[in-house]
């Protein structure tokens, strides 16, 4: 087994990197994949909270790097699904506590035992982003249909393109509101793609279930109830596994999703 290391990043904060990481990880695990999430946001860790694993952390990533524990000891196993682990960030340190080389050797140790290693990048383009990008095989850039978020995504994609490794990069467009797009008050999927000209991995609608699930520490894919955002993340997971899942064939025939279909109808 050789894991694919996928870094999830955005440039701008608050667009849903951590939520996306948690939900994609849970969705992949629920589809039978061996998954580990690495929280690279040292000093501002959140992934453990969103995944509901905060109270089970003993050691963290910096402890591993500085030799206070073994890698296995720091990994928190999610008991709700098989083969899902979290490597939490340190909360009392900052980004400079680890180096890009540390991240490469750390993921190197994990590659043999997993199929997917998801790295939750901190916001920004500085040290923390460099750490998160260093071990990546692929990158998912998360953005919202807001001009400022798209600007930052463009900046980040430019930095990734400048990397000589030529990492495959795809776009996750989060928090779409079909009603606002229809009124012309929000950038459409095509507007965003026109600016960023990047492969689209998925579109996640705005969904209040996300907020509830994040607060509860229960990613949507763990929920038996079907939700628009949960379905969207599940589709993203399927696409990452190589399945061809059409963007628009998103369940519900009537209601808001059929409207979504009309709006996205002309997209690729």
């Amino acid at each position: 087994m050789t894991a694919r290391v996928i870094t999830i990043t955005s440039g701008k904060g608050g667009v849903g990197k951590t939520t996306a990481t948690a939900n994609i990880a849970v969705a992949l695990a629920s589809l039978g994949k061996k998954v580990v999430c690495v929280d690279a946001d040292i000093g501002l860790r959140n992934l453990d909270v969103v995944m509901g694993l905060e109270n089970r952390i003993v050691y963290d990533l910096v402890d591993v790097v500085e030799g206070r524990c073994k890698l296995r000891q720091a990994m928190v196993k999610d008991k709700r699904v098989a083969d899902l682990y979290l490597l939490p960030a340190a909360q009392t340190r900052d980004k400079t506590a680890i180096s890009p080389q540390d991240m490469v050797s750390l993921t190197g140790q994990l590659r043999a035992d997993f199929e997917f290693i998801l790295i939750d990048s901190p916001a920004g383009i500085e040290w923390g982003f460099r750490n998160a990008l260093a071990p990546a095989d692929e990158v998912i850039v998360v953005t919202n249909p807001e001009v400022s978020a798209v600007r930052d995504a463009d900046r980040i994609i430019g930095l990734i393109e400048a990397d000589p490794r030529r990492l495959p990069t795809s776009l996750l467009l989060n928090r779409i509101k079909p009603e606002m797009i229809r009124r012309g008050d929000m950038l459409s999927v095509n507007d965003v793609l026109e600016i960023l000209s990047t492969r689209l991995l998925g579109v996640v609608p705005e969904d209040e279930h996300i907020l509830i699930s994040s607060n509860r520490g229960t990613p949507l894919a763990l929920d038996s109830e079907r939700t628009p955002a949960g379905d969207a993340f599940l589709n993203v997971a399927r696409r990452l596994m190589g399945e061809k899942v059409p963007l628009i064939q998103l369940e519900r025939k009537d209601g808001w999703f059929s409207r979504l279909t009309r709006i996205f109808g002309s997209s690729k």
Binding site: D154, R155, I157, G158, E161, S197
Partner: peptide, 24 residues
């Protein structure tokens, strides 16, 4: 290629871009 946000091109002559020049 497309010049993305944050990229800077300086030239003592002309500049020709085959691609977009994005905001920033």
């Amino acid at each position: 290629r497309t010049l993305r946000n944050g990229r800077v091109v300086r030239s003592d002559g002309h500049v020709v871009v085959l691609g977009d020049v994005n905001a920033g």
